[in-house]
């Protein structure tokens, strides 16, 4: 496990569809209070396409103030588009942006804990980097793969999962600070490699 000087939680909604219920739950006073209690100082949110104005409104509703200091632009991979706020009387720093080309580097270099939507890409990003992960299932999507994959990974002990609600998020946050996950197995498989080369050179 890496040592990150600023205890940071990273919330990612995936590249394509925004996930408003997750964002509003994460920005709720109760959840932020809980974060502070567990020593988190920074909250990084990748909120998805075209959700910027709504995000701005949400933060301001919760008393967030725009700030302009030491954003780790290089590591965020989102250009100049990142916005920074101070929340909960300056006890929590919030950084938000639409999209990042360096999600993996954010996870590896900046995050102690990740909350992600239940897309396989986002799940693998965290698990392959051995970062503890809470998976939040988007129940407003019309396909149940996300639920299935989340349930499966919970059953195998690789992640915690929650619904996009404040109480459910808090329960998972508590679990993440007190329990340990099972290690995710490595992906290289020599039988599959043999099968591939068998097909190639047949």
């Amino acid at each position: 496990m890496c040592i990150i000087d600023i205890k940071t939680i990273f919330v990612t909604c995936g590249a394509t569809i925004p996930f408003p219920k997750l964002i509003s739950s994460v920005l709720s006073d109760v959840f932020c209070q809980e974060l502070i209690q567990y020593g988190f100082v920074r909250l990084i949110i990748q909120f998805g396409k075209d959700y910027g104005p709504a995000f701005e409104n949400l933060v301001q509703e919760h008393g967030g103030k725009r700030e302009y200091k030491n954003i780790p632009i290089e590591e965020l991979g989102c250009g100049e588009a990142a916005r920074q706020y101070s929340l909960m009387d300056g006890k929590l720093e919030v950084i938000g942006f639409e999209y990042s080309t360096k999600v993996q580097s954010i996870i590896q270099n900046l995050s102690n804990l990740v909350i992600s939507h239940a897309g396989t890409g986002s799940i693998l990003d965290s698990l392959r980097l051995n970062r503890p992960l809470v998976v939040c299932v988007n129940d407003s999507l019309m396909d149940n793969h996300q639920q299935q994959i989340a349930d499966k990974f919970v059953k195998l002990g690789y992640v915690w999962s929650c619904a996009p609600s404040v109480t459910s998020l808090i329960a998972s946050l508590r679990a993440s600070q007190t329990e340990k996950l099972k290690p995710f197995p490595v992906s290289h498989n020599s039988s599959f490699e043999r099968l591939l080369s068998g097909v190639i050179y047949s």
Binding site: G14, G119, T120, G121, L196, S197, G198, I200, Y201
Partner: peptide, 27 residues
């Protein structure tokens, strides 16, 4: 596989991949 790869190593592989979108490309 080891034998196979060495045996045919004179001719480099030609591979086609199709990138779907989002998750498919990632995988």
């Amino acid at each position: 596989s080891v034998v196979r790869i060495q045996k045919s190593s004179q001719k480099p592989l030609k591979i086609f991949v199709f990138l779907g979108s989002g998750g498919h490309t990632g995988e």
